[in-house]
């Protein structure tokens, strides 16, 4: 049986401006992301990748169509409920990490949980567990400037999926990292998705998009193709060494 759909975008369009000045950033987007699934979005600059991510996280609303997160249609919620759903359900990972410099790793992770109203002690406990899951328990009390780029991004991943958060939206998460560190970050991100989350990954680097279950290609605001999630050609597996 298929895993439940966490994010569903149906007939989504986003138009900026009106009349002749209107810009169709996205048109007719249909996309589902299930728990345990990582979907990569690729496309040239201006193809609508960032707009797609913004709509998926409820930071903007579509001019047409619906966005559902865990079965709740975002446009049907008032601003406060949408903000709460976003805070509790969605985590972001950016190219430049976006950690607060004055807070330690654990504090960066626990802050959104404390804003949710849980006790500082419980939030710290969750933060330490989240750090453990990305293999960084030892940096809990370090400040961002005391960490490497790879460690910072892993902290950001921990923050994105702390507590009940299940949808991870990543915008070029490996953009500031060297090749091997980027690979380490993707491995952690993949493991966290496999452990029971869902992810939407915007990247222009095919090598990192390849960690996703499938890749959708955007051009001029439209999905033009998808790799699908079927297994690859048998011929590919022929390169596997014998046991």
């Amino acid at each position: 049986m298929s895993a439940p759909v966490l994010l569903r975008m149906a007939g989504v369009a986003r138009v900026h401006g009106q009349g002749e000045a209107a810009v169709h950033a996205l048109r007719g987007i249909n996309l589902e992301v299930r728990l345990g699934e990582l979907v990569a979005v690729m496309g040239p600059s201006g193809s609508g990748k960032s707009t797609l991510l913004t709509l998926a996280g409820g930071l903007d609303t579509p001019t047409e169509g619906t966005v559902e997160l865990a079965g709740e249609e975002l446009s049907g919620l008032d601003q406060n409920r949408r903000a709460r759903l976003r805070r509790r359900g969605v985590g972001y990972v950016f190219q430049d990490f976006n950690l607060i410099p004055a807070l330690t790793a654990a504090e960066n992770i626990s802050l959104p949980r404390e804003l949710d109203g849980i006790s500082a002690r419980k939030a710290r406990r969750e933060a330490l567990a989240a750090l453990e899951e990305v293999g960084l328990r030892e940096v809990a009390d370090r400040f961002p400037e005391e960490m490497s780029g790879g460690q910072r991004q892993r902290v950001a991943i921990a923050r994105a999926l702390v507590g009940p958060r299940r949808l991870l939206l990543a915008d070029e998460p490996t953009g500031a990292l060297d090749s091997l560190t980027g690979e380490d970050v993707m491995r952690i991100l993949r493991a966290r998705i496999d452990a029971g989350a869902a992810g939407l990954l915007v990247t222009h680097e095919a090598r990192f998009a390849a960690w996703a279950d499938r890749t959708v290609f955007l051009r001029d605001g439209v999905v033009v193709d998808s790799t699908g999630d079927r297994p690859g050609a048998e011929s590919l597996l022929a390169v596997r060494p014998r046991a």
Partner: peptide
Amino acid sequence: IQTQRTETMRALRDYTRLAG
């Protein structure tokens, strides 16, 4: 180009899985 890109991405994904 798009058809080829999709196929090549599929291959890249499969190699990445093998590497994993």
